[in-house]
Design a protein around this nucleic acid. Structure first.
Lengths: 340, 340
DNA sequence: AAACCCGTTGACAACGTTGTCATGCGCTGC
DNA sequence: GCAGCGCATGACAACGTTGTCAACGGGTTT
């Protein structure tokens, strides 16, 4: 009735609990005869070691904590899926938490998980770098996901935001655009800031001056990116292309273009792939961030830390991939020149 | 250096460990003076009880297991988000697992979590009812999410699939449609089957005969629903509207209509809301399943089971909500009659 | 034949916590 | 003034596991 313990197995097999323990943990110094008898008892009783007892005794945990912005964000949802799959492959479980991009909530969740006993944490950091690095736990393995914290020395797994944004700008320029708007929210996250800087650099590299009127740095979602897009398109010398720093910001761009009936006139590239991107009209050209790759690398690094294999801290930077689907290939006024 | 235990607190406060335990657990029979002293020691040392030890001693777990199809599915992702939030509100954590709609994987994950010690499980069941009811754990609190298992007697939290599908059909009929196609995958999940049955019933209630040529029951995603839609629209007497049983099936419908350039001619209603539904052209009319409500109810029922408050098993059926956005309001050939 | 060694096995303590029970103290009521 | 009672507190065992160390037995070496 009650779940069997190591004692029950020992009694059943006629050996001591220690011997059962040895068999369960695959220690070699057990005679194969006894090992078989023990295994038979284990199977018969359907015995499974008690995790709490084992954790208490050994201090070893088999749970990974994952703290992300929101599970409703497909980017993080997909990473969560992959982190979970990778964890299970390594005999671990994943407990999730979300921050809603609130740095205080983030801290509460990270502290809670770190305290409650996890083998390690994967965390998409939120908030001021200096503050973050002060409270980030140091006694528990930690991998920072997607966003770097410059002042901390932890493992970091992220994508090359600058290269991705550069590629997007270059792509638009190569299709004949020189008036390219930028829409995003630079205030909070360093990654978005990086994308903006790369946008500027790439423009200048193409011999195009950055026009501050075309840059919106406070658009988190469509509630602001939509009016901005509408307004900027009404300028005397409007942009012919837009780079959206995130899918959320991109929504507003698309919504504005839809409302103006200009979806097929203005080129759009969105940083970050999203579901149904290919069913929009035109299908959206995006910079894919490879969330699955990020998740895999994060788990790999974390398990290396946990097992002590890892030497120094490491920063893994994955490459982005520009996925041309249509919206980014709408030709601009200098298309003829550019294609030469 | 090492994390403080109850012994450290006891020494610091000059009391026995039992008294510290009493304070920590909020027992009343402690003189307020000693309680304060203990609390001071706790604060000073930043003591937090060891979960593993507590679980070992009491057998009480503070983790909820959540097993869903996939976290990449926005429906489940949103439910996961809400389950997690509700769990934290009640001092619990959530460990996630996904099945990929594979019943063996589902069983493995559920068994694993049930065995490893969770306070309870929330599970979106997959597979044959009879088989499921045979292995579903009975010694651990369990709430079935989104899909019923008729042969089991567990708590169930789901939406009224039949009513939702009926409403969708009635909506289309009221906009002048009589040739309405159905696209979905009935083979696996009972919910989809319910939607099909309700589709048939609703048509007959409107005096419309069900045309088997308009019904596709093996389309899980766009790889089959797209060709079906293309084919069915090429019939002599084609449908003027489509009911997609899921967002995934709906993708193929939209893709097909896009390819044919007939997005604004054929009415579409999708069972289940999805991100960007309102940015498609036309915006998609959907039957919203209230994932947040489902998640909240599931956690509520589970916690009732855990605390023993719950009496009999209960089935909670939430109402769906038809969200008219455009695609479902494209008028059909009998629009004039219908609007009278 | 005695000494030794190695491989197998078991007794026991310990991890940090809470339940059980006993102890001690100050009161109340006779 | 003494039995008795209630309340605060503590000593100790137990939850199920693994690390430490000792014991045992059979074979090899001297």
């Amino acid at each position: 009735m009650t779940t069997p313990t190591i004692h029950d197995v020992a009694r059943e097999a006629g050996v001591s609990i220690k011997t059962v323990s040895r068999v369960v943990n695959g220690e070699t110094n057990v005679r194969s005869g006894t090992a078989q008898a023990v295994q038979a008892a284990i199977d018969k009783l359907d015995y499974h070691p008690n995790r709490a007892a084992r954790t208490l005794r050994t201090g070893i945990h088999d749970t990974i904590g994952l703290v992300v912005d929101s599970l409703s964000d497909p980017f993080f949802a997909q990473m969560t899926e992959v982190v979970q799959a990778e964890a299970v492959r390594n005999g671990m479980d994943v407990v999730v938490a979300s921050t809603g991009l609130d740095s205080r909530r983030a801290r509460a969740q990270v502290d809670r998980l770190a305290r409650q006993g996890v083998a390690g944490l994967i965390f998409a950091p939120v908030g001021d770098d200096a503050v973050l690095s002060r409270w980030l736990p140091r006694h528990v393995p930690l991998v920072l996901l997607d966003r770097p914290v410059t002042t901390a020395h932890h493992d970091i797994v992220r994508v090359d935001d600058a290269a991705g944004a550069s590629a997007a700008v270059a792509h638009l320029v190569s299709h004949g655009h020189r008036r390219i708007a930028f829409v995003g929210d630079v205030r909070g996250l360093a990654t978005i800031h990086d994308r903006l800087v790369a946008y500027c650099t790439a423009l200048e590299a193409a011999g195009i001056e950055v026009d501050p009127y075309l840059v919106e740095t406070a658009s988190y979602d469509r509630t602001t990116s939509m009016p901005f897009t509408t307004a900027v398109l009404a300028l005397e010398d409007p942009p012919t292309a837009v780079l959206a720093a995130t899918p959320l910001a991109g929504e507003g761009v698309v919504a504005a273009l839809t409302a103006l009936g200009r979806r097929r006139e203005v080129a759009v590239v969105v940083f970050g792939d999203f579901p149904l991107a290919d069913l929009l009209d035109p299908p959206m050209t995006v910079v894919d961030q490879d969330p699955a790759g990020l998740a895999r690398e994060a788990v790999r690094r974390l398990l290396e830390q946990v097992s002590g294999t890892s030497g120094a801290r490491e920063t893994v930077v994955l490459r982005t991939r520009l996925v041309a689907r249509g919206s980014g290939e709408i030709p601009g006024p200098y298309a003829a020149e550019a294609s030469r």
